[in-house]
């Protein structure tokens, strides 16, 4: 009746990664603090290949106000236990409902979406992964990937206070962890860009995700120190697959969809005033 069609393969092979709509089963829901939950999902079938930096579109069931899916970073994938981890920050009714999901319930998820981070060409490159608030989420999966590939990994995690530093012990499994908090309750006091580890040494590659002002400050630091820098953007999305054209960001190539051309961008592509 119909002929199937393959995705147009242009610049990146990533476009040909097949996307799936899956009903995943909630295996654990861990309340990390009053506004963050770690949701661990599994499936009776093997999870598809997912790359660090990619995201999922999660359907929110039973909300009166949330109509569209919510784009959520892939926090971690454990292929041995067939687990997909999502880190949820409760902001509105949609994320509140997601955070309240119970063990055994299913979540309808489209994945894997978006692109991935670029790996350094040299294994001895000095890497720094900088996350702020809930923006730390994709860096765990990225750090795990880099460690497995033989790179030495450094994480710099920033938040308002100790309660907002999430999953510290998980990051410590894959690299050195440096911390800043705005109130000084954990690690060094101040913003991530004020941490002494950035003053003490230069890094070849910097990967960052978090609030836009933080990412711009990190990008500015990267430019000054001649580091390659990639940022993971978060924009309001409807479809997550490049159809609605709502989540655009302005780049040297014009308006592009964050969901398909990103969420990861090299800062040289963005028209940021930094």
């Amino acid at each position: 009746m119909y002929l199937s069609l393959y995705l147009i393969d242009t610049q990146y092979n990533i476009y040909s990664m097949k996307k799936f709509i899956l009903d995943l089963i909630v295996k654990k829901n861990v309340l990390l603090s009053n506004q963050y939950s770690l949701i661990i999902l599994t499936s009776s079938e093997k999870l598809p290949e997912i790359l660090p930096g990619q995201f999922a579109e999660v359907r929110v069931d039973g909300s009166n106000t949330t109509f569209l899916r919510r784009p959520i970073s892939i926090h971690y994938v454990d292929y041995e236990t067939n687990e997909l981890w999502l880190l949820i920050q409760v902001i509105g009714d949609g994320t509140k409902r997601m955070a309240e999901v119970k063990v055994g319930e299913t979540m309808n998820i489209i994945l894997p979406l978006g692109n991935t981070f670029a790996s350094p060409t040299r294994k001895d490159a000095k890497l720094m992964l900088i996350g702020g608030g809930c923006g730390v989420a994709p860096l765990l999966f990225l750090g795990a990937y880099f460690k497995r590939e033989g790179y030495e990994v450094n994480f710099l995690l920033g938040a308002r206070s100790e309660a907002d530093i999430l999953q510290k012990s998980e990051y410590e499994r894959f690299g050195n962890v440096y911390i800043t908090t705005e109130d000084g309750s954990l690690g060094e006091k101040g913003f991530v860009t004020q941490h002494s580890v950035l003053k003490g040494s230069n890094f070849d590659y910097i990967y960052t995700c978090g609030p836009t002002p933080m990412m711009k400050a990190v990008a500015s630091y990267a430019l000054k120190t001649n580091a390659v820098c990639e940022v993971s953007l978060e924009n309001t999305m409807a479809c997550g697959i490049g159809a609605c054209l709502c989540c655009v960001t302005d780049t040297v190539d014009g308006h592009v969809c964050v969901c398909t051309e990103g969420p990861v961008f090299n800062i040289t592509k963005l028209k940021w005033q930094i």
Binding site: N64, T65, T66, F67, L68, N235, T236, M237, A238, C244, L245, C246, C247, V248, T249, D250, G254, H255
Partner: peptide, 20 residues
């Protein structure tokens, strides 16, 4: 056509506004 600047979408009760 480059389309309009971001933000282009707002979710509303049982709907969405777009300005693509």
């Amino acid at each position: 056509r480059q389309g309009n600047p971001y933000p282009r979408m707002a979710e509303t009760p049982s709907g969405m506004l777009n300005a693509v």
